[in-house]
Write a protein that binds this DNA or RNA. Sequence first.
DNA 1: GGCAACTTGATTGTCGACAATTTGCATGAG
DNA 2: CTCATGCAAATTGTCGACAATCAAGTTGCC
Lengths: 241, 241
Amino acid sequence: MQIVDNQVAEDGEAPLSDRIVRAISDAIISGDLPGGAWLRESELASRFGVSRAPLREALRLLEERRLIERLPYSGVRVIQLTLKMVADLYEIRAALEAIACQRAAQRITPDDIAALEAMLAAEGEQIDGIERDRQRRLSPIRDFHTRLAEIAGNDELLRLLSRDLWRHARSYYHSAWKTLSERSRAAHFEHVAILEALKHRDGELAALLMRRHIDHSRAILERHIAEQDKNEASAGGQKSE
Amino acid sequence: MQIVDNQVAEDGEAPLSDRIVRAISDAIISGDLPGGAWLRESELASRFGVSRAPLREALRLLEERRLIERLPYSGVRVIQLTLKMVADLYEIRAALEAIACQRAAQRITPDDIAALEAMLAAEGEQIDGIERDRQRRLSPIRDFHTRLAEIAGNDELLRLLSRDLWRHARSYYHSAWKTLSERSRAAHFEHVAILEALKHRDGELAALLMRRHIDHSRAILERHIAEQDKNEASAGGQKSE
DNA sequence: GGCAACTTGATTGTCGACAATTTGCATGAG
DNA sequence: CTCATGCAAATTGTCGACAATCAAGTTGCC
């Protein structure tokens, strides 16, 4: 496992533990810290150049966010996404994003529409473009959904969708890159269709399209995790990197 | 504010911070730590008889759970429920509990039905009974919903409903006791109706009833918070108990 | 008298060291 | 050879003390 060095340096004012949360969270979601990996506090602390106190606070927060799991006196490891977990998460996500669509259809403004269109335009460019950087690639997708939740005006919903339920994103990175490109194309057009419905303030249609969109994503993701599980069946889980 | 002394004593094996989470969480939900109250770390630490290290870990977890909010270098205070927050939370809860009903209708077993019936019987007894203890009063209501989520078989859903979204419960305690008694009676019969639908494996009906049930609860809760806000408009928010 | 800058006190944030617990290995008996 | 038992190293959990930061009270200047 390889954490980007000194990612803690940014945002030099906030308390250390807050910055560590960001760093570890990114490391997990980006796949640098793979699912099932054991984390040693002292190692993480020295890697980030801090003491264990703020590090442990960060770990407790990440545990509550279900990015890691903690076994008392035994250790901390990155949560391993299972098929069941993905199915459960996506069932919830589908329902919540459908709500977001319905609310957004009621509240959306011309400016919002313009902003979303700009996002989708950028998304379309990236599909065939030379943008191969992982971080920059997934972000516009996430931005679209997050922006939608913002427009919906339900703060709790936004928090759930943009933070707690995005654990699954981790698997995108681990999954085969080729298939994801094809999926990106389809997903893009589904986004366009959703936006079109929102423009007509048809919340019901937008919600329906969103539910299907998420179901499609889930199907892809489940297939990838199934393959991944098969591959890792031989060498997995031991307490090392 | 008055925290039950040494509530940390129970469950003598788990790490201190885990027990503190439970203690503070209960104190907030039960209303002993009212919304908006400022918490001083040193005071809490001495009250629970622990050092600040595990206490701070607990606070970070509770912050992520949105029971408290933390202002860096400034302090920690109990989240103040607003009308907006309750509306947002209940919109989500209605959708998620509706899912729970639909899933539960597919999976419910005779044993589950028997267990739920026993719960509702106990709930019915308590309404007119002499049970005036706050803690014991709300618990059967919570149990019914939690059990339903368990039967649904979606672990993530269970976690959200039984933990993250139960912040609102706090307001029940602060609200007028009399009205709540009346509400309890109505709520009880709504529970019975939901269970009846589940017995016939009618997930759609159960979900619909559940949505209405939650909407009713929200209406009551919103009214109480509105009154509460009015009353606290004069003396509120200063940094003391 | 009013306003700005400083000072002081209190509180949060961080650190290094110590205690408690687990886990793997060695050891020995059956 | 297998299994129970005890030991030891490593890791997590906890503590008390120190540093950084904010808030309020005070002082001095205009």
